[in-house]
């Protein structure tokens, strides 16, 4: 067997799951370093940077998403266990939850339906189609649950995932300046809002800012995932 030309090598690598898996993990590690170097500036979001960088690499190399996903699916699969893992911060926070049970339940009862209603009503008023509106329904819920909800209500799972991630990044970028502008210093409340609105990406951001904020964000993400997963199919069962 003769030595492979660079072209042969590329043909092999571009179709191999290993290449895209390695590139995704590598870029994410680099993006995390960048976020740390920036002093965790809200705009330097590792998830956003990685997605943009990978999309650019795929465009430049003319690689199809299916080919990319063959490799990246190994990371994607971890969404499920990572969602179940939310039970751990929930368990650790059980005393905190008991002490703050009323504010938590009230903020959840208002926030969970508000997140759904505000996005879908605005999109509806601006003339968006059914496809877009349905995909917006679980946008504040962590991706592992949101894609499941999308399946239940007939929304496109990939579009849902994109909107979920966009909401996560938006909330993570907005939350700190917004709360500071309103002079809100209650980190439990700030974290809860970040996790409810922007799930895992908001929670990752909350942990960068404050430990208490991070615990409440993780709690809010888990509770909103549960609440939305229960509310939405029931509401759709009623309204149809």
């Amino acid at each position: 067997m003769s030595a492979a030309t660079p072209f042969d090598l590329w043909v092999y690598l571009a179709a191999s799951p290993l290449l895209w898996l390695t590139i995704t993990v590598g870029i994410f590690v680099g993006a995390q370093r960048l976020a740390k170097a920036s002093g965790f500036n809200a705009l330097v979001n590792p998830v956003l940077i990685t997605i943009v960088a990978v999309v650019i690499v795929l465009q430049l190399t003319g690689t199809r998403y299916d080919t990319y996903f063959d490799g990246a699916q190994f990371i994607h699969f971890i969404l499920g266990p990572a969602t179940v893992a939310l039970a751990v911060p929930l368990y650790r926070a059980r005393q905190l939850v008991r002490a703050k049970a009323l504010p938590i339940l009230a903020a959840l009862a208002v926030g969970a339906p508000f997140a759904i209603a505000s996005a879908t009503i605005i999109a509806f008023l601006l003339g968006a189609g059914r496809e877009i509106i349905l995909a917006l329904v679980p946008k504040s819920v962590t991706a592992g649950i949101a894609v499941g909800i999308a399946g239940e209500i007939g929304a496109e799972p990939a579009l849902t995932a994109v909107l979920v991630i966009a909401t996560g990044i938006l909330g993570a970028v907005i939350v700190t300046p917004l709360m500071n502008a309103h002079k809100i210093t209650d980190y439990a409340a700030r974290g809860f809002a970040a996790g409810l609105t922007s799930h895992g990406i908001g929670t990752a951001r909350a942990y960068q800012v404050d430990q208490i904020a991070g615990s409440f964000a993780g709690l809010a993400m888990a509770l909103n995932g549960l609440a939305t997963a229960i509310i939405v199919p029931l509401a759709f069962g009623v309204f149809g």
């Binding site: 605005i122 209650d186 609105t197």
Partner: peptide
């Protein structure tokens, strides 16, 4: 529609949630 819906909904959801939490607290 998407950008407006996402940005406005995200800002309002953050404010409403933090507001209710603090009020009840």
């Amino acid at each position: 529609a998407l950008v407006v819906a996402l940005v406005v909904s995200t800002v309002l959801t953050l404010l409403v949630t933090v507001g209710v939490f603090r009020l009840v607290s």
